[in-house]
């Protein structure tokens, strides 16, 4: 009996931790929607939302109330089942990916040996959200957006995986905790600088953030794949975008910036600070860059990023063999 009670406590504690991380990730994504607007305001020489609550702090609440009470309209020409399923996939696939992130030495949901592969799988599934959402809407703009999204994500996922293989090779594991541990002395951004660059590009691309927001491309496709969505279904796509941002930032911190490692401050604070800095970078990209044309972006992926990751992987492999003590 004693053993099973202990077991129960452990299970409950793990569940509580998982729930806390889930809530934390969701909350962070939601807060980012407001933070982004304030930051954009700052860089665009204007105020941004500052009316609700002190310094606009309750803007999020106002947004939530608004989006929850909006009419949840499903167009009569839409494919109902897929139309409802798509935003759920968008949000679920990203939320599940948060499982593998080691936030601190003790916090994290799953400590898997396939950790990184799980992320790739979830990112792959995420494409379906956009594809199905765009296709089932029965709208030509949505369809064009979905086509762009699919083409873009598929091409960028090819080298997204490859760009991380250098990290995996250096750490000798797909497990994110092992990867963080391997950065004790030197963050992987130094030996894996090109891996970092290409992963950052791919990360922005899979989250459809500017300048890789081709699937939405407001000026061209008038919001692309989620043009027909309203109410909370739109909200799920919307929060999903920010979840993606948080996820990619957290992953970059884990893979290239030593995760929670850092002097003086507690591990979680380090992790949070690094993630926040990357999130700000995401917003800054949006504030400062024009959008390249879709076909140029595809050729950039295939002709620049892919070869770069391959060369990086080759050099990393060669260096590891060169430096490792002769095998027995």
């Amino acid at each position: 009996m004693n053993g099973s009670t202990e077991m129960l406590v452990v299970v409950l504690a793990a569940m509580a931790q998982a729930l806390a991380i889930l809530a934390g990730a969701l909350l962070l994504a939601a807060v980012m929607t407001v933070v982004e607007r304030r930051l954009l305001g700052l860089w665009q020489d204007r105020h941004g939302p500052n009316r609700v609550g002190p310094w606009g702090s309750l803007q999020l609440v106002a947004d939530m109330i608004k989006i929850l009470f909006k009419e949840d309209w499903i167009p009569p020409f839409a494919d109902r089942a897929l139309f409802v399923l798509a935003p759920a996939i968008a949000m679920a696939s990203l939320l599940l990916s948060f499982m593998i992130i080691p936030w601190t030495p003790t916090w994290g949901v799953a400590d898997w040996h396939i950790g990184l592969l799980f992320f790739f799988a979830m990112a792959g599934i995420n494409v379906y959200a956009v594809l199905l959402g765009g296709w089932s809407s029965g709208n030509k703009y949505a369809l064009l957006g979905a086509m762009r999204a699919t083409a873009q994500t598929l091409s960028y996922e090819v080298f997204m995986g490859l760009s991380l293989m250098g990290v995996v090779a250096l750490a000798g594991s797909f497990n994110l905790r092992d990867i963080v541990a391997a950065q004790q002395g030197l963050w992987f951004i130094v030996p894996q600088f090109f891996g970092f660059c290409t992963f950052l590009v791919a990360g922005v691309a899979v989250t459809h953030r500017h300048p890789f927001d081709q699937p939405e491309a407001e000026q061209e496709l008038a919001d692309g794949y989620h043009i027909e969505y309203s109410g909370m279904k739109f909200g799920m796509f919307y929060v999903g975008e920010y979840l993606g941002m948080v996820l990619v930032s957290a992953l970059i911190v884990t893979l290239f910036f030593g995760g929670w490692h850092g002097p003086w401050l507690p591990p979680f604070v380090w992790f949070a600070l690094k993630t926040a800095a990357l999130l700000v970078l995401f917003v800054l990209l949006r504030a400062s860059l024009p959008r390249p044309r879709f076909d140029r972006m595809m050729s950039f992926g295939w002709r620049v990023c892919l070869p770069l990751t391959l060369i990086n992987l080759l050099v990393t492999g060669a260096a590891i063999l060169w430096l490792s003590p002769a095998a027995d």
């Binding site: 204007r46 500017h210 000026q219 949006r286 504030a287 024009p290 959008r291």
Partner: peptide, 13 residues
Amino acid sequence: YLQDLGAMTPVFY
């Protein structure tokens, strides 16, 4: 013009 090229900031300036 710049906004149509996807740059969202210049229009505010």
